[in-house]
Design a protein around this nucleic acid. Sequence first.
DNA 1: ACTAACTACTTGAGGTGCTCAACTATCACC
DNA 2: GGTGATAGTTGAGCACCTCAAGTAGTTAGT
Lengths: 134, 134
Amino acid sequence: MQGRADAEIVRLVFDLTENLQHRYEAVAAEHGLTRQQASLLGLLDEPRPMSTLATLLQRDASNITGLVDRLERQDLVRRERDERDRRVTLVARTASGADLHARFETALYGSGLPFSALSEDERATLLSLLTRVV
Amino acid sequence: MQGRADAEIVRLVFDLTENLQHRYEAVAAEHGLTRQQASLLGLLDEPRPMSTLATLLQRDASNITGLVDRLERQDLVRRERDERDRRVTLVARTASGADLHARFETALYGSGLPFSALSEDERATLLSLLTRVV
DNA sequence: ACTAACTACTTGAGGTGCTCAACTATCACC
DNA sequence: GGTGATAGTTGAGCACCTCAAGTAGTTAGT
């Protein structure tokens, strides 16, 4: 019984996930980005090694090479050599990359989830449950 | 204030989404499927026209042609002509497609999701709040 | 120092996913 | 029958992804 109710909840959560994923993709597209590019750009609040990006995105290192290549070509991102360990390439947002990222996030987070449907208490509950799950 | 808490909720929801998306992809990969293939297979509890699949997945029709081609090559799915409207191709799971799908879902729903931190009541609350907002 | 083992990144091959434009077949309707 | 819409396919072109192989730089053992 318990297990079955669990599965049902999980199924619904995955439906929601799919929904949100489409939204993310759409907002990214409006800003001329793919889902993956937007996602990578979002990790660069500070410069990071390629290998770290690979780990965070759970992708092969060679995949990151390609993503960074394409972002670099659009002047959204810059490769810097790490002088402490010269094997490492640090990836940083350029000015226009930072700008685009800011606009993307604003659009994404502002893209009206209908919070008016919830009371203030319910919002607080949702927030606290989410922080425990994520 | 209110706006900031809302933005925080949205951020967390998208983090959760990303998290679950990775999990979905990993379980799919364990079953020899891509995310898209698993997703399409999941829509076939009954046979459906290609065009319906395109609408549900929010993809171009020609994309569905390719996905179904690859699933058909693995004998997970079968094309049937709709005799009521012979323009239509119905896509149905084969026996092994149904089998794989069942195993996939079991693995997915059973795979230690990040909800273990919550009680069953809390899960239900979270879900109901989420469905009202998303 | 020397070298062996390891790490960071790149390159190239090969497959999947995705869209757009152009095409064929079928249907609906008058 | 002819016209216009709909379902699906094909091919071009690009993004994404992994694997295997290679280069460059680092670390550790001797």
